[in-house]
Design a protein around this nucleic acid. Structure first.
Lengths: 188, 188
DNA sequence: GAAGAAATTTAACAAATGTTAAAAAATCAC
DNA sequence: GTGATTTTTTAACATTTGTTAAATTTCTTC
């Protein structure tokens, strides 16, 4: 498993001093399963680095929860729309296991961006990588069938299917749970 | 219509000096309909600002072109994956009309990012806004039906449907052209 | 403006996915 | 371990979307 230091510096190499500045903003928190990191309709002021545990983001659609993102160890958790547009976010993010996270205040982070060019470029790289991750996820939806999406998930992240209930996996893949069961019956 | 200057400064306010530095990298080009801005399988070294015209990005899937993005006046055209990961891009971007673009060299842009903190933060904001745009497009796919997607497009960008052949609109919406025709027959 | 080409719609049928409800399996609490 | 609860699978049928091909409309070119 990657440490937070490795994750930060792998994104974009920064000096020890910048690293200190960045990590000094972080607060280690142990949070229980079910804890809500972001709540739909609220403006977010925090970003979280997942040290241990798993999180999911979901929205409501026709009174049903639709899961569209999972975060695992060494992932960052943003309510990106809320952060960028400075408006209420549309998603709720909850922890699916007892977890350890490093929490950072977004206002303090943005302060750093304005005064430290190394960190400004680190923040740029962060957004750029999040962008291509989101783009890839989008492409998967537009270019692959539900069965292909499931197989890809099975290959790339088999642990996720063990750790998360299948109704959440189903909505993550964009199908109903019944369809996912059918797919699993085929693949088996 | 927005000028390029307005588009740049709306994203993130920058000083006149930074603005000069940025725009000095730009080269105005008049390019014909059908011109390829990025070609699949190649690493991109440029970014384009569309002053006049329209562009589309597509990939091949089972020997068929699948259009997944349109760019119009005052949009920026990146081959983002290629730029961020510095690997061959998976998409081809072509101009659908005779167009005027401002072309910028990515290496020179990145030079500026490393020396000018204002521009580094501008570049960060650019990536952040592209991120939430991509995220929104993804959410539309996971949360809305094809009919809803068509209606939304009709409302938000009616001109696009006039300017672009329907088979491209169909694949942009993630359905076949036959299905799009059916949707249009219903909506009418 | 007429002939040909391209784009769009319609039709008929096949395949995939959704919906509802019930059955089966797995998990939890005691 | 046993009963209750939750999760997952299966079944039956409805709806949506895809596929192929033909018909129609629109656009080009001369």
């Amino acid at each position: 498993m990657q440490t937070i230091g490795q994750a930060i510096r792998q994104l974009y190499p920064i000096s020890d001093r910048s690293f200190e500045q960045l990590t000094s903003l972080m607060q280690r928190q142990e949070l229980p399963k079910g804890h809500i990191l972001f709540r739909e309709g609220q403006v977010s002021h925090k970003v979280f680095f997942i040290e241990r545990g798993i999180a999911r983001a979901f929205c409501y659609r026709n009174d049903q929860e639709v899961t569209f993102w999972f975060g695992v160890e060494s992932d960052l958790v943003f309510s990106y729309y809320s952060y960028v547009a400075n408006k209420p976010g549309y998603e709720t993010v909850e922890l699916l296991e007892n977890s350890v996270v490093q929490a950072m205040d977004l206002a303090q982070l943005q302060e750093l961006y304005l005064t430290n060019i190394e960190l400004a470029n680190w923040g740029r790289k962060l957004a750029e990588y999040e962008l291509i991750k989101t783009e890839e996820r989008f492409m998967v939806f537009q270019f692959q069938s539900a069965t292909e999406r499931y197989k890809a998930l099975l290959q790339q992240n088999p642990a996720l299917i063990q750790r998360v209930p299948l109704n959440q996996i189903a909505s993550y893949l964009g199908v109903t749970q019944v369809t996912l069961s059918r797919i699993r019956a085929e693949v088996r």
